[in-house]
Structures are given as C-alpha cells and as structure tokens.
Design a binder for these strands. Structure first.
Lengths: 252, 252
DNA sequence: GTCAAGCCTATTGTATACAAGATATGATCT
DNA sequence: AGATCATATCTTGTATACAATAGGCTTGAC
C-alpha cells in the first residue's frame, strides 16, 4: 500500500501486507513522476533548502520524503548523504537529517574564501585565457547587460552565474574551477538576496565590465583585485542586508 | 550464502547499563573486526587508497568489502558515497566504484589551489593571531625542529601537519580552516612523498621558521607570500619527483 | 574463422524486513 | 504531586531479498 511500485509487479511479496498505511494522510503529489531519475531526489531537496521551503533547523523525515518521491528510504538516504557532504544539511547519528543553520558569521567567512578563489581564477584567466574564451566571456557580459537593461533580476541572476562560471573555466585550472563552482552553488541563495539591494544590479554590472577589461588586457594583478573586490562587496552587502533586518549582530 | 552473519547476533547487554558510553564494545574484536564503529569502514578504505594499497583505476568490490568488515553492503555503499564526495573514488552508475586516477596535472592544480588557501590563512593569521595562538605555533615549530634533528621523517610529517593546522585555526576563519584541512588531507599522500627528496626536510623547516617570523611580526603580506611559496615549492618538488622516476609512467 | 545476436552471470540499485537507538508516555514510589 | 524508572512507539541504521543492468559467453549463421 505504501509502496505503489511493488504492488503492480507480478511477483507476490511474502508477507508484504504487514501493516496498512499509517500515514496515508500525507499528500502524495508526485503520482505522475514515477520513475524518478537518479539525482532528482537530491536536486529536489536541495531546491527546497535553497529556496527556503525547508527552514534551517528543520528536520527532514526520511519516510515522508520516500513517500513524496514514491521510492523507498534507500535512495532518499543516499540523497541526504550527498547533501550532507556539500554542507547543506547535517546528519546527526541516530537522530536524522536537519537543514543546516548557517550563521551570519559563517556566511561572511564563506564569502571571504570565495573572494580569494575568484580572485585567483581571475588572475590565472588574465594570463591564460585565449581568443575564443575571451569572446565567450564578452558574450556573457552582454547577456548580463541585456538582463540588467530590462530590470529582470531572475535573468541577471542566471547570466551572472554563467559569467562567473566562464571565468572559472578560463583559469585553466579545472580543480580550482570545480571548487569555485561548488562554493558558488553553496552561496547561491544568499547571492540572490543581494539583488534586492537598490542599484546593486547596476553596480555589479559595472564591476563585471572592469573585470572583463582586466582579463582582456592580460593584467593579472588587476583582474585578481577586481574579482576579489567584486565578491568581497557581495559579502559586505550581504552583511549590511542582514544587519538592516536584525539590530543585534554577532558578526565578529 | 554470501553473508555468514545474522545467526549469531546475540548481542548481550540488554539495556540495563546506565553508562553514558555509547561504544562499549570498541575493543571487543570478535573474529575479525566485528562491531565496526560508524566511519571505520570509510577510514579503512581511504587509508588503503592513500597508502597506495588500492591502486588508481582499481575497482572496489562492494561484496568483498562487506565480507572484509563483516557487514552488509549497505554501510559499505554509504562509505563509498562519502569517499566519492571527497573525490577519492569515482562512482560509475551501474558499474561500481573505482579508485580515482589523479593525473600529475591535476595534482599540480590542487597544489596551486592549496598554496592560495594557505597563503590566505597566513595573511589572516598574521593580522589576527593572538598571544596564545602564536605561542602554540612556536611550540609546533619546535616539535618540527626536534623531529628534523633526529631525521625522523614520520615524526616530521606528523608535526608538520599539526603546524599547518595550527595556522589554519589561527586565521580566524573557521570555514577557510575546514576547507584547507580538507585539501591538506587530500594531498597528504603526495606531501609525504616529497620528504624523500634529499634535504627537503631541512628546507621545509627553514621555510617554517620564516613563516612563523612573518606571522609574529604581523606582516600579513609577507606571511602570505612565505606560505604560498612554501606550498608552491611542494607542488614543484612533487612534479620533479614524479618526472625523475617515471619514464614509463602513464602520466595522464 | 569471424561476427552477431541472444542468453548467462556477475554486480549494482532498490525495496523491504529487522534490529537498535531515541523520544514520548505512563506507572510506581516517595 | 512530582520525580523517576520502565515501557511503548517511532525513527534510524543494517541486513537481506529482489529487480535491473552491463559485460561476457555461447551458439549459430555466413
């Protein structure tokens, strides 16, 4: 009953009729999306966390998730493990999975590291980027400008991500690129928040232009500084934003 | 059957014990290594990889590992997932787990990133380290010197790890500290290799002294440079080392 | 002899069963 | 009545059963 899959298979399960569904009241919306692809579960839970649908500190119930995706607990646990390894949730032994509470101080520290990595990527990109790579970055800058011109924060947010990813790739250090992407992904939700700050999109765009200029001219030190500042500003803006909400702040 | 287990699951100790200790059976090694602690499996496989007992490209057989630790495949798979998330192995869908082949180029890239992070930690440590922290770092430098004096590479290797960890802590950015530790751990095996290079231990020690000096004097830029170079040299030495012994090595 | 197609087997992936830990709940004693 | 211990119940963790897939092997045709 609780596992819709097993019932329709021709084989008979020994004593499968153990107990009638004791939680059948919960909504099971995903009726249509049987056959979830591997990784879908992970992505869905991640999305819930990043969008704030799952609040920090909240417990994630394995059984509920299993029902929601119409799978057993096994793949759900797998997904939870992966999310824990990325740092999005915390697995307390014998207690379960909880959405991680990230303090403001911790976020600022993460932005600080991100700034360093982006700066490094910029420095290397300025030295190593070839003709085609630079053209691609230029294109993405243009896309950012278009999005900004139409005041479309969602589009800007998306193009911005692509812009930075292109720089990671351009640095010629695949490991750095993957580490930077990982952190970028991790800070996604908080980056987005800043776009609400008035004029931030325009400022960001101006910074992007200077970054491209520096990379194009091959000025490694400048590219490093511009990118580092670009991210550092985001960290500060984020801190401002938070401070404006909460008067008391323990941000070291 | 494949799991010669389950029959003798006569775990005594009903629950009358009001002891707070949760792993009472830690030293109780029945048969092989019964009652493995959570995480032991992961550590053991990791150790095999880092020490080279499991060669790059080699396939890790779930069933064999399950037998070896006398557990079912479930916790083994869990351990493999974690190792995959750290990058030590690769999980090919429907194919299994394989020890990741790290090319020399990739390793150099990792050292490059490591150098940046260590440099950052040094810079911040120079600015933020307090009285006690510096004393602690000094102590660890002394321990390195002692180990070096007695030509004990194993001891030096261990003290070196503590020395760097102390600097990570001193930087006042816990996130950076954890990221640096993660990478340090990842490069562990390759770091160790370098100590075989003649005079490397002495050079390393000299570099350590300059690093401590820079941090003590509060010279952030210098501390950053010294640490960065310290790691960069390791990357270069590593490349030299590999180049010197592998004419026949299928590097990449 | 070579190649291809289809079965065979070995191994991964998923579901379910079962065990052990944790929390909630109720009974008993002071 | 309140506290404490015992138990009931729920949840996580692990074992096992089953399903599905990949790769090898056999067989048959050319």
């Amino acid at each position: 009953m609780e596992q819709g899959r097993g019932t329709q298979s021709s084989r008979s399960v020994p004593m499968a009729t153990s107990e009638p569904g004791q939680y059948e009241g919960a909504e099971r919306v995903e009726r249509s999306e049987r056959r979830v692809r591997r990784g879908d579960i992970r992505d869905a839970i991640e999305q819930d966390i990043l969008t704030g649908r799952s609040r920090p500190g909240e417990k994630l119930d394995e059984q509920a998730l299993a029902r929601r995706f119409d799978v057993s607990r096994t793949p759900v646990r797998e997904a939870l493990q992966q999310l824990a390894s990325v740092g999005l949730i915390e697995l307390k032994p014998n207690r379960g999975a909880f959405v991680r509470e990230v303090s403001i101080g911790e976020l600022i520290q993460m932005f600080e590291v991100m700034a360093e990595l982006e700066g490094m990527a910029g420095r290397l990109a300025a030295r190593r980027a070839g003709e085609g790579t630079i053209r691609r970055i230029r294109e993405l800058l243009l896309a950012c400008e278009t999005a900004a011109a139409s005041r479309d924060t969602d589009a800007y947010y998306a193009e911005n991500g692509r812009f930075h990813a292109a720089i990671y790739e351009a640095c010629g250090n695949a490991f750095l690129a993957s580490e930077a992407s990982r952190l970028h992904q991790r800070l996604k939700a908080y980056r987005r928040l800043q776009l609400r700050v008035p004029k931030r999109m325009e400022q960001s765009l101006a910074e992007h232009r200077r970054i491209v200029e520096a990379i194009e001219s091959g000025d490694a030190a400048l590219a490093e500084r511009e990118l580092k500042d670009h991210i550092a500003i985001q960290g500060e803006r984020f801190a401002d934003f938070v401070a404006s909400l909460s008067v008391r702040d323990a941000a070291e």
